[in-house]
């Protein structure tokens, strides 16, 4: 059986102060990649208010002008509802990128967490997905997040702020292979073990 590991790698020194959470986790095997963004929002007004998060995932090519947008998710109301304006992953793999991006209602005087999570197909989903990740091995990404005040119908009222994670993550140069070894003893017990029970 083949096993894969360390698909994503995020150098610790590149993590901005505002970038926290589980980063660069090893996945064996990888079936899904999740990019999640959240922002705490406080309602200082006198009525309920709604917030949503817009996200850009951008591959860095060395010069900003040559950067490539991989994913652009907009939570605003439009024909067909919110969704991905740009999705290079599904365009090249035929596997749709799914998302979870609720319209968060925040009551007066309280704080809520507005968030958007994007789910990309992982290494092991199909052969095309595997080729896709191998084709883009070593790519570096920045992630831009913008939090929006929207009305209950999802129409934009105000942009509350934006932030760029300039060194968000990087795809490893190559997929590390897991290597298995059959032990001859484990916890003082000889391996393999045969157990025969009679009840």
């Amino acid at each position: 059986m083949k096993m894969y590991g360390r698909i994503f790698d995020v150098p610790k020194e590149d993590i901005p102060a505002t970038q926290i959470g589980q980063l660069g986790l090893i996945s064996v095997p990888s079936i899904q990649m999740t990019i999640s963004l959240s922002w705490a929002i406080r309602n200082v007004g006198d009525a309920d208010a709604h917030a949503a998060v817009k996200v850009w995932v951008i591959e860095k090519k060395g010069f900003p002008a040559s950067d490539v947008e991989w994913l652009v998710f907009t939570p605003l109301a439009r024909e067909g509802g919110p969704g991905l304006d740009v999705d290079i992953v599904s365009a090249e793999t035929d596997i749709f990128t799914s998302y979870n991006a609720p319209l968060v209602t925040i009551f007066p005087g309280s704080t809520g967490i507005a968030y958007t999570a994007l789910y990309l197909p992982g290494y092991d989903v199909t052969d095309r997905v595997r080729e896709f990740w191998e084709k883009h091995a070593g790519a570096s990404f920045k992630v831009v997040v913008e939090v929006l005040h929207v009305d209950p119908a999802g129409e934009l009222l105000e942009s509350l702020g934006a932030h760029t994670f300039d060194d968000a993550f990087r795809l490893a140069e190559e997929v590390a292979m897991g290597k298995l070894e059959a032990l001859s003893s484990y916890n003082g017990e000889a391996q393999p073990e045969l157990t025969v029970s009679v009840l």
């Binding site: 990888s30 990649m33 999740t34 963004l37 290494y123 992630v143």
Partner: peptide, 11 residues
């Protein structure tokens, strides 16, 4: 926790 928060995971 400083805001916003980015998490990237593969599993």
């Amino acid at each position: 926790i400083r805001q916003p928060v980015l998490a990237v995971m593969a599993m």
